[in-house]
Design a protein around this nucleic acid. Structure first.
Lengths: 217, 217
DNA sequence: ATAACCATACCAACTGGTCGGTATGTTACA
DNA sequence: TGTAACATACCGACCAGTTGGTATGGTTAT
């Protein structure tokens, strides 16, 4: 799915091409206002390009939405692929390490850790099949990255009645739900509410895998 | 929070006043397209009233959003307050009964069980403080209705490290996340994905309360 | 009659999208 | 090597339609 890993632009090299600048503006504006409320003019203004440039790179606003989901997916996927929790010895440690990392990322204002794909799909799941599919790929791709570790953890712990794919989806569901609750709470308390949800997810996984709870975020 | 309980209008008496018809149209259109993508003209057309009627009852589109969250909250609140799971003997049964009811409601197309408050707050949490607060009240009110049974279940089971309020929020978070994943999945498989998430929530609660898993939805 | 309720007509701002045109390469070939 | 042919990236004015919102006037119950 999606998440913070894009705290703000200053920490990453400023995108050079107009296309990248538009996608970067898309990340920011969709997080702040959603997809429907974000206009093409706004995207152009924020990216510092003209409308002509926009429609040179994207056939339509919908096409930008599709590209944005992929851009988001690639960015977040690369971030988690390079995270240190992968080097933990036991699969259960790797699974809990992933959750701990997600917890650590839940800080600051909601728009700094909310999910572009999750936000978009809520709005357009019925009106744009192309964007819906792109968001599904983003969220489910993020889930898929967890499956191997979860399968190993299940095998090692002997957990029954659950599947690796199902648990991976559940992790994404809790993350998405945590973001919704954080948005509802608003203000400085938002991130704390979201972290609390991930703590419950961690406890669930730890219980399933018969692992003692260690400290978390 | 939010949910199906409003499967479709045919099962409830057709609202008579223009205000109610507009709110009913709001439920349907926000579920299908989100709040930003829903125009005042669309709401009027669907409700069978004119723009004059709209702005007679609501000072602005934002005001309708606030009223819609309250309308939604009252409708769903009344539905769950009257549900039979409240009559179960043990608190753990009542908690799991609530989840089983939610699972049973997850059927049909996503727009028939999605959450109006959750959808709205995703889009406008930064741009409309009034709607955000109304959605928070809706979602947290739904959570609050569970707290008494959860507190009793915690007391009876001796569960530690969790609070009734925290678990109540977690239930809402999982429900919201299940809806997001269902929207991403799309099509006929959507409801099944959502039910799977609630099953995980049920398993988590059952483990916390040391209760054996019985059949669920 | 008087106030709540609702319809019609209208407006300025903005919507996604188009279009003709330009500036800067990149390639093909004499 | 020079130049013609083509491609890519971008600009900014413009379009028809839609947006949320207003102004005003007519009904209908009390």
């Amino acid at each position: 799915m999606v998440m913070a890993m894009i705290p703000n632009q200053a920490f990453r090299p400023a995108p050079l091409t107009a296309r990248d600048r538009l996608l970067e503006a898309g990340v920011k504006l969709v997080r702040e206002q959603g997809f429907s409320a974000t206009s093409v003019d706004q995207l152009c203004q924020h990216a510092g390009v003209t409308k002509g440039a926009f429609f040179h790179h994207f056939a339509s606003k919908e096409a930008l939405g599709v590209a944005l989901a992929k851009y988001w997916s690639d960015s977040t996927g690369a971030f988690f692929a390079g995270a240190p929790f992968h080097h933990a010895e036991y699969p259960v440690q790797r699974v809990l390490g992933y959750i701990d990392l997600r917890i650590a990322l839940l800080a600051g204002p909601v728009e700094s850790f909310s999910c572009v794909a999750g936000t978009m799909v809520q709005e357009v799941f019925l009106t744009s099949e192309a964007i819906r599919a792109a968001c599904e790929a983003s969220i489910m791709g993020n889930a898929h990255a967890l499956e191997a570790d979860l399968a190993a953890a299940i095998a090692q712990s002997g957990a029954r009645e659950v599947t690796a794919a199902g648990l991976a989806r559940h992790a994404q569901a809790v993350i998405q739900g945590a973001i919704v609750l954080a948005k509802a709470k608003g203000g400085a308390a938002a991130a704390g509410v979201a972290r609390e949800e991930l703590q419950h997810l961690r406890r669930y996984f730890a219980m399933l895998f018969q692992q003692e709870m260690t400290d978390a975020g």
